[in-house]
């Protein structure tokens, strides 16, 4: 085992997954961005007396967009994880293939929680109308 794992080989394998590693941050980043946008835009809008309805509808539109983006990221992560086609839900082995699937799994779960997060942040937009 140890002889097959030379540092050169390892770094080559890790480099192959660098993209996946970045990708798993996209869904939470979308959630964070949406959160920031909602809070800052609404607070600024209320403080500056911008038309509340417009701000609100704009943000609801942004929420739909954020949800679509997260759904897409989640979909792609699911495909990378591919629990159905491989028949394996967990990927505990330290090899390139398992690492690839595992990062898909992680990305998928992060997309799920980000989706829920965006829905929770959007609910006040839907249910509360004014600045008060």
């Amino acid at each position: 085992m140890t002889d097959r794992h030379t540092p050169e080989k390892d770094s080559a394998e890790f480099a192959a997954e660098a993209g996946s590693l970045w990708r798993i941050t996209f869904a939470p980043a979308t959630w964070a961005g949406h959160f920031l946008l909602c809070y800052t835009l609404f607070a600024t809008g209320c403080a500056k007396g911008w038309p509340v309805g417009t701000v609100r509808h704009g943000l609801i539109g942004m929420s739909v967009l954020a949800l679509a983006v997260i759904a897409l990221i989640g979909w792609r992560a699911y495909a990378q994880w591919s629990p159905r086609s491989t028949g394996r839900i967990v990927n505990p082995r330290g090899d390139a293939e398992d690492r690839h699937h595992f990062l898909g799994h992680a990305g998928f779960l992060l997309a799920v929680i980000s989706f829920i997060g965006v829905v929770f942040v959007t609910l006040p937009l839907l249910l509360l109308e004014g600045c008060r």
Partner: peptide
């Protein structure tokens, strides 16, 4: 274990929290 984990650990709290959130948000106005 898996359905219990997904059902009790993810779906149930999400549904309960969402219900409470909607309920309390409709109370605010």
């Amino acid at each position: 274990v898996r359905p219990l984990l997904i059902g009790g650990g993810i779906v149930l709290p999400t549904v309960i929290l969402a219900t409470l959130l909607v309920w309390s948000l409709t109370m605010l106005p």
